[in-house]
Amino acid sequence: MLALADDGLIAAQRLAEWTSRAPELEEDVALANIALDTLGQARLLLSYAGELEGAGRDEDDLAYLRDEQDFRNCQLVELDNGDFAVTIVKLLCFATYQHELYSALRRSTDERLAAIAAKAVTETEYHVDHARLWTLRLGDGTPEAHQRMTAALGRIWPYTHELFETGWIEPELLAEGVAVDPATLREPWLSTVDKVLVEATLAVPDDDWAPTGGRHGVHTEVMGYLLAEMQYLHRAHPGATW
């Protein structure tokens, strides 16, 4: 639960960095929409995670007062935005993963999680489609954009393997049908991503390097800076209400 929430929270934090910087005003509005959806999903999940924990922590306690090692997001979402090509490749890979995951979680035996997933599915479907539209226009547009997309794929692809790791989920949650085994999502994920890349005349990168650790609290060096920025004000005023 915390892993899903953190994925959304950190992805939204990165997407919101595009605000007032997008390639066209229309895209500024679109990226903000996606960030708002993703942040909204994260908030629902964080609140629920806090309730399940039963220690009285709310969404803000979890977002602002945990240290880096306690964040369970995949490393993919914390990576720098890079240029628009990197952002679109990240979005394609991440939103497709989220879409597969939430589609499966609609059938979770945990009713509240299933309800959150049902709402998120329609949102992520739109995110995937947005990433697809842009992947086509950048992959099959100018040579410069094609080259940038190829470089972005090379940079992002290694971090997609972590999305489908299984070991970190408690076996009983899988057995009870609460959680979904991420490994089962890799095939439908690859089929979607592969189709988009082929249509965009882009090559699917080789699977070699597969960095990992996010689900266990091991992050990349940029994560500390992201959290420092996100959390500093909240932490500078302990106990304050905003």
Binding site: R21, P23, E24, E27, F84, L138, G141, E144, A145
Partner: peptide, 11 residues
């Protein structure tokens, strides 16, 4: 920074 993106979409 967005020029190459707009150009590619137009292409």
């Amino acid at each position: 920074d967005g020029a190459w993106v707009r150009d590619s979409a137009a292409a």
